[in-house]
Simulated scan of single mutants.
Amino acid sequence: MALRVTFVAAARSSPRLAERFEDDRPLDQAGWEEVQRAVGDLLPLAAAELRYCSPTPRSRTTGDALGYAPLVQLALRDCDMGRWRGLTLGEAMAREPELVDTWLSDPGATPHGGESLHAFITRVGGWLDTRPVEDGCRIVAVAEPSVIRAALVYVLKAPPSTYWNIDVRPLSTTTVTGRAGHWNLRFDAASAQPSPAWERA
Rank of each mutant, 00 (worst) to 15 (best):
T130C: 15
S146I: 00
Q73L: 10
I139N: 05
E134N: 10
T110I: 12
T174S: 14
D23Q: 05
E115Q: 09
D24W: 10
V5C: 10
E96H: 05
S13M: 01
F120C: 11
G125H: 08
V39Y: 01
R58M: 08
S161C: 03
V8A: 01
P26T: 10
A150I: 02
T162D: 11
L45W: 13
V153T: 13
A9E: 01
E96N: 08
T174G: 07
R77T: 07
D24M: 13
S191L: 07
T173Q: 15
R95D: 12
A30M: 02
A92Y: 12
L185G: 12
S54I: 02
A46D: 03
S195A: 15
Q29M: 00
V72R: 14
I148N: 04
D23C: 01
A9S: 15
V147C: 00
V142D: 01
E98C: 04
E34P: 00
Q193R: 15
T110A: 11
Q193I: 06
A197T: 05
M93L: 14
T173I: 15
A201R: 11
W164M: 06
A109H: 07
N165L: 10
V142R: 02
V147M: 11
R4C: 07
A38G: 02
E96P: 01
P57R: 14
L50Y: 11
G67Q: 05
C79M: 10
R123E: 12
R58E: 11
V39F: 00
Y52K: 11
R200C: 06
D78C: 09
E49S: 15
R169T: 13
P111A: 11
L3E: 03
R123W: 02
H118G: 05
A151G: 05
L50M: 08
R77F: 07
P159D: 15
G113V: 09
D106R: 13
S191A: 14
W183E: 10
D101E: 15
N184E: 15
R169N: 07
V153M: 11
A10M: 12
C137A: 09
W103A: 13
W103I: 06
K157Q: 13
R179P: 00
W84N: 02
T56M: 07
L185P: 10
L171M: 03
R123Y: 02
L117V: 09
T102C: 15
P97F: 08
A9Q: 02
L76R: 08
R37T: 08
Q36P: 00
P132C: 11
R12P: 03
E33S: 14
H182R: 14
Q193A: 15
F7I: 13
P55S: 11
I166G: 01
R123G: 04
C79E: 10
F187R: 14
T174R: 09
L152D: 01
F7L: 08
V100G: 03
A65D: 14
I139F: 11
M1H: 05
S105K: 14
L89N: 00
R200T: 14
W164D: 08
R179Q: 08
G82A: 04
E91A: 12
G82W: 05
A189V: 02
R58I: 09
P194S: 13
G114A: 09
A30N: 08
W103N: 04
A11K: 06
V124D: 07
G178L: 12
R25M: 09
